[in-house]
């Protein structure tokens, strides 16, 4: 019978290769099952956030944007018009705040939704309240710093939300400008 030398380099290499390829195979299978599910969930999540801003939303198309802290820009067709949404992530008190900001074609805010945040519970999380977020609706870029009242005790979080909305306006106006030139 063939005697295996367990100390030989060849043997260690073979064992390690077999283990690694076994694990890699397992992961490849799991990945092929889960990746479409993950992609679908992500798309649904974005769709839900957009729908809470444009209730009559039909479909959206995402594009990249170069503006800093803006992750993605969505061209949303709703009712019989086309408007925009931007996913922005300004830094708040406890890290990034992810928010979806609706912007109309004439650069007014049509709605703001907080997607995720890690602000202090009970303090910074107050920016999720409708009272605060509804202040933004209808405003143009030069009005945001003056017309939106910050929540007392949660200045940093509220300011972050304002910055996020301004970023979204920037992203949309950049996008429209690029469209005009091209």
């Amino acid at each position: 019978m063939l005697k295996i030398n367990k100390e030989s380099i060849l043997y260690t290499v073979i064992v390690l290769t077999v283990i690694s390829s076994g694990i890699a195979l397992l992961l490849a299978i799991i990945n092929s099952v889960t990746s479409p599910v993950i992609a679908k969930k992500n798309l649904e999540e974005k769709g839900n956030a957009i729908q809470s801003i444009y209730t009559d939303y039909i479909s959206f198309e995402s594009t990249k944007t170069e503006v800093k802290n803006a992750e993605e820009l969505y061209i949303v067709s709703h009712g019989d018009t086309t408007d925009y949404c931007v996913l922005v992530s300004p830094s708040g008190f406890g890290g990034e705040i992810q928010m979806m900001v609706g912007v109309t074609g004439d650069l007014k805010i049509s709605g703001v939704e907080i997607v995720s945040m890690s602000e202090t519970a009970g303090v910074g999380t107050k920016i999720k309240n409708a009272d605060f977020l509804s202040q933004f609706i209808g405003l143009q870029v030069n009005k945001i710093s003056t017309d939106v009242d910050v929540i007392s005790g949660a200045t940093v979080s509220s300011t972050a939300a304002k910055v996020g909305v301004e970023t979204a306006l920037d992203a949309v106006s950049e996008y429209l400008k690029a469209g005009d030139n091209g």
Partner: peptide, 22 residues
Amino acid sequence: SFIVVISGFVTAIELLIRAYVP
């Protein structure tokens, strides 16, 4: 080899959680 096995299972769990309990 222990680390390979462990991190393999961790990655598997990570993918499953991301897909079914986002």
